[in-house]
Design a protein around this nucleic acid. Sequence first.
RNA 1: GCCCUCGUGGUGAAAUUGGUAGACACAAAGGACUUAAAAUCCUUGCCCUUUUGGGAGUGCCAGUUCGAGUCUGGCCGAGGGCACCA
Length: 839
Amino acid sequence: MERVNFQEIEKKWQLKFSSQKLYNSKGKKFYCLEMFPYPSGKIHMGHVRNYTIGDVVARYKFMKGFNVLHPMGWDAFGLPAENASKQNNLHPKKWTNQNIVTMKTQLKMLGLSIDWDLEISTCDKDYYKHQQEIFIDFFNEGLVSRKETYVNWDPIEKTVLANEQVIDGKGWRSNAVVERKKLSQWFFNITKFSNQLLNDLDNLDGWPEKVKLMQKNWIGKSYGSEINFKIEKNKDEVKIFTTRPDTIFGASFLALSIDHPLSKNFKDKKDFQKFQEECNKTGTTEEALANAEKIGFDTGLFALHPLIKNKKIPIFFANFVLMDYGSGAIFGCPAHDQRDFDFAKKYKLEIIRVVSDGDTQKDLTEAYTGAGKMINSDFLNGLDVDQAKKKIIQEIENRKLGKRQTLFRLKDWGISRQRYWGCPIPMIYLEDGSVVPVDKSELPVELPDDIDLNSKGNPLESHPKWKFTKHKSSGKKAIRETDTLDTFVDSSWYFLRFCSPEHKSSPFDIKKVDYWMPVDQYIGGIEHAILHLLYSRFFSKGLAKCKKNFSLSEPFKNLFTQGMVCHESYKDIKGNWLYPDEVEKLDPKTVVKRDDKSKVKVGPPESMSKSKKNTIDPEKMIKEYGADAVRWFILSDSPPEKDVQWSDTGVASANKFLQKIWNLNILISNRKENRVTKNVEEKFVANINTYVDKVDKSIENFRFNVSIANFYEIYNFIKDYLSSEISNKVLSENIIKIMKLMIPFAPHLSNECLELFKCKNVNKWPEIDKNKIIDEINFAVQINGKTRDIIKIQRGLGEKEIKDIIRKNSKAKKFLENNDIFKTIFVQNKIINFIIRNK
RNA sequence: GCCCUCGUGGUGAAAUUGGUAGACACAAAGGACUUAAAAUCCUUGCCCUUUUGGGAGUGCCAGUUCGAGUCUGGCCGAGGGCACCA
């Protein structure tokens, strides 16, 4: 049999794909978008998976008659470019552009149906110019503000570190202990939309429930109360926020953030400074704070309990209270909150139970956070927690001790980055201290190329020619903002730019956006479930506020989050990571190093990453097995939302199967006519129609692994018909249907096969007669819930007819004889269950 | 630590609203073809039984139901996110 030269046919069809687009001007619009890649060097298997899934959707929708927008671009600003340029002494722009060229070539090798005329790159000044415009619009609309916040500071490199650059509390290059440093930075006021971002989740029917839940928890709306505590021998008051006002009678201390206004009174005290230094050793991430030991500083002050006469409780500063949540102060109720419990144990504070867990005699070993009746709580006694919450809030409001309050966990979005390779923030500082936007006519504020990457900190700081400027309208001297924007800003509106990438006068052509948006299917990694998606949602809402004719409130109608591509990892005797290429599998349990045959330790499959060297190069795989085989395998092995394990034998078998498909097509095209029996042909067509229906459904449901299993079944099915009494006409008509179904999965081979049969209307999805599908089904016969027989019946048979069949001829017959049928459960087209007992 | 998700053969997995558990494939073992190998094809795949047949079985423990991989509660294990990686 003729071998397929996959490389040759792929080259041929890729040339055609490059000019063929997915537009059907008469069809309904369909915007298919995959998260655009960061140009890090070469594409990785995660990209292959993401873009193959997207390509299946785009090609499928196109074949179904939709007018499909399927663009691609580059999330081109970011930290790795700066790191790489320091290592290789290569300018970030050059490094990035080289990577884009490489990756674009590689993506084309996959045979993706992308309209490359729409390509955009976020580091392109034609792109970020518009981003600066949007920033200024947001600024004018009151959606931008300046606040102080903490950053990771490397005291040796004199630079701000990203969280990933902090390893065990130390700088990744300098190894210096990282300090927390306060900086004044720019913020998008995303919290202005907290309620809207939360409530609109309910309208996103096309989003996975888990992503919506994660966003909901991230926004974190909680109901509680503000309570004022008077300080003894002092005129000050401390305002606290709590979600558990019901536990107020169990309060045994107040804890304040070290940034609480009250800290000013202590700033000159040496032991407080020491405490502050101690706190600044913990990182800036929530995880670090949560895991850090709870420490406090006793102010020596006491607060007066608002509801218990003459009760005084101590006031502490504590590292686990955050200034940006609530009022930066809490009351501690150790009996019913684990953090408070740990704190109370450490500082020997009172532990008063106010919610009964049933046994109130024995000492608590941990906080009790469950439900129960109130005790030791004066007028709340006997109520359950929810009732007590309502009553106490009412009481607090009546006595003017505080008020009911709703709070969000969501924080404003800090967008300042002390880095070079990002979009410049279009703001200037005037001599008189005022801060104003750059005049729009001067945009873009272009990133200068001539920078010294080896300078300490942000290179823009040490670029006087760029940094010193003038305010256009007043002519006053000014200094540019040297911070650049968080790269999440770049990706918060790129999907809008894709609708009209050439548009010059504004970020997008509103008519085009009106037509194409929202994105009908957005596809990307689950790791973006919160930040990127939330920020993009915020952008839509922000733009709607700035632009009168912009009405889009949610950018992504349907969302699909795919799983990761995994591979086992290998370590040699010395503990060095090895690439899969460097090892050899002698048998499933023995793996050795290829060169010296020394033992290799095999790690569990985990997400492919450069640091663990458990990566497989897609380009190498494409060259060895063909793009269709790589696409085929990446879709076949796991459902797309789950992780998939890369397997070389898997891709090899995909390649073999595609070869068999080609052979089958050749056999059919060369087949000698046989005798024809009408029944045989009808049964054949009915089966094919059933398969077409199945594949269609599995694509609609994103069950691409099931689609592929169907193709294996179809192959086994058709192969058996080659020698049966069926005409060549019927065979070729039906193999054409199947090859069309395969286009989204293996576009090169299926087009080649369709060409073999001189097929016209290649890109039209096969239509089937729904009346001509298999209507025989397997029906389970159960006795007392146990399956005793499976009978083949016509779809739609009633209970009586089925009982007759069973009585006449069934393995279950013997169970029914000599027994009373006590009850019968009948489910049409599924099962019948006889509940019997002995006579 | 907090939030979310997922646990089905040796492996990846399949299984409308609860209704045939293991489709389809990978790997393995045995066989056919071949001088041989490759390629290809066939068979097998938990326990008892020669077969017929019967039993156990979807991470673990309970529960609801005629019937649970699917629903509920608890436990154990793995993965993702935690605001400056993208």
